[in-house]
Amino acid sequence: MIVLEFKLKGKSQQYRIVDEMIRTAQFIRNKALRYWMDNQNVKLSDLYKQCAVLAKEFEWAGKLNSMARQASAERAIFAIQRFFANCKANKPGKKGYPRFKKGTRSVEYKTSGWKLSPDKRSLTFTDGFAAGTFKLVGSRDLHFYAPDEIKRVRVIGRADGYYAQFCISVERTEEVIPTGKAIGIDVGLNHFLTDSTGATVSNPRHLRKSEKGLKRAQKRVSSKKKGSANQKKAINRLGRKHLKVSRQRKDFAIKTALCVVKSSDFVAYEDLQVRNMVKNHKLAKSISDAAWSQFARWLQYLGKVYGKTVVAVAPQYTSQDCSTCGNTVKKSLSVRTHICGCGTVLDRDHNAALNILAKVLRQAGINLNTLGHREINAWGQSDLYSLVVTSMSKLTG
């Protein structure tokens, strides 16, 4: 499944209708959740039936396409299933009990209620709201995909306008030449990442760089009269600034993950529990700004696309243990150099990256210290890489 996004260009009246569509989808979702709360053993089919009841009871709710109403009910059932899954897994902390939505920004259609123009450059909504035709603005081309491959169309409202996301049922695969490299990656705040070869990528700190402008925009929001048109304009300007930071962070995570995956055939990274780490209020902003979780998700996704092996490793003791002798050298976060009694002196993150790779190799039954330097074989792959891939394939089945 791939997602292609386009900006919707239309008139002001059309945008107001889209807002009504989004509010209706939120109403259906909240009503479906209330029905689950008031009844026992509710299934998705029961929520589908409740959507039909709501369409008859509220005339404006009936304007929304029937499949769009079902998609809104699915959002409720997904939240319910996630809650029960967290309870079953005994997830620490809050389990995520489903809540009523207040500021929903999207509505989702399935295979009806919309249609593309013959040139696939415009999108028309055909349900009861009659939002009309919107021009699609974007760099991607929908001509490569058959109409029946588009399974869902999601309309999202953001600070800088409205967007349509097309969910297309195709598998994305890319062919690349094997590099024969296996690396470990340690992420941090000083450097965004350091790999087992000692190479580093600097931390861009998008939020920190934009913080002054964000504070100024927030002050303007606070200074305006509550509920006035000027305050709404100020809120929109603030939202645009936050949206820019979010897009910068996502773009950096994708490009960095892509470089890592393309340059190596085997990648081991630390599986950080960011949710717990942000409880440290002194580092929470910097950790959130780094977006390690987003980077890890793109590593996993691009690994599948390019046919590379990407493995998450538990981060315990990777910074404290010596990558050469294995002895534990305790150090605080402020100590950035690893100095061991065996004579090893390394950057703290470089030492951790070596330990991350060594952990995976130990799981595969390979001793990194006894391998030494290996030659590249006739297929362009090192003996180390071949051993890692062969051993890890046995472990993962």
Rank of each mutant, 00 (worst) to 15 (best):
V201M: 09
N203L: 15
P204S: 15
K209D: 05
S210N: 13
E211C: 08
K212L: 08
L214P: 09
L214Q: 07
L214H: 03
A217S: 10
Q218G: 00
Q218N: 06
Q218S: 02
S223Y: 07
S223V: 14
S228G: 04
L238M: 02
G239H: 09
K241W: 13
H242E: 03
H242N: 06
H242Q: 09
V245E: 03
K250F: 14
F252G: 06
K255N: 13
K255C: 13
A257N: 09
C259A: 12
V260C: 01
V260W: 00
V260R: 03
V260E: 01
V260A: 00
Y269N: 08
E270S: 00
Q273C: 13
Q273P: 06
N276H: 09
N276K: 11
K279P: 00
K279C: 08
N280R: 05
L283P: 08
A284T: 00
A284I: 01
S286M: 09
S288E: 12
A291D: 03
A291T: 11
W292F: 08
R297S: 15
R297I: 13
Y301V: 11
G303M: 11
K304M: 12
Y306S: 02
G307D: 05
G307A: 04
T309G: 11
V311C: 05
V313Q: 04
A314D: 12
Q316T: 02
D321A: 11
C322L: 03
T324Q: 05
C325E: 03
N327Y: 10
K330Y: 06
K330L: 02
K331W: 00
